[in-house]
Amino acid sequence: MEGRPREEHDLVERARRGHVAAYEELVQLHQGIAFRTAYLIAGNAADAEDATQDGFVKAYRALGRFRAGAPFRPWLLQIVANEARNRRRSAGRRAALDLRLAGAGPSGGAAPSPEAATEAAERRRELLGALERLREEERLVLACRFFLDLSEEETAAALGVRRGTVKSRASRGLARLRDELGEDARA
């Protein structure tokens, strides 16, 4: 990761001058996060794919407006996320975000006992359920912050809101989750 910003800066500069291969490298660097952000917003993979591709193309044409030396990712995410919102809006769909648990959870450190693994899976299901009952605006902020690991600035750019709004929606969402899960735990 060392040296990434410098390298990215060079790629952006070359892309601005019309260097298509440099831009392709930038796409490769950021397509994962861009696609997942679009997926969370659009709610399905097909729209997310279109939004990501069109977003990257629009971002390329708009590179002349990009401030040299600024972080590229929030700027890009803003454009891709906007494409994703447009698609969802024009389809008139509510985003019924399809979040599925993968077969196995993350395997961190020592292999957990079967009991611990079962309990962890149960907690994840609970949390997912609670998350789905949140207001969408809160769920999206939490998903950007904790699932995608976006910074507050990036989350604000992607969702088209201010940073203060990101903060307040995140803390409201977390408080609701704690309320709900706390009660579940006692029950």
Partner: peptide
Amino acid sequence: ELRDLGAALALPEPPEGLAARVR
């Protein structure tokens, strides 16, 4: 727990060839 959940979720990967198509 949210971070753990994020890691356990099957968020899709970008489709093959996206970068080439953009290019």
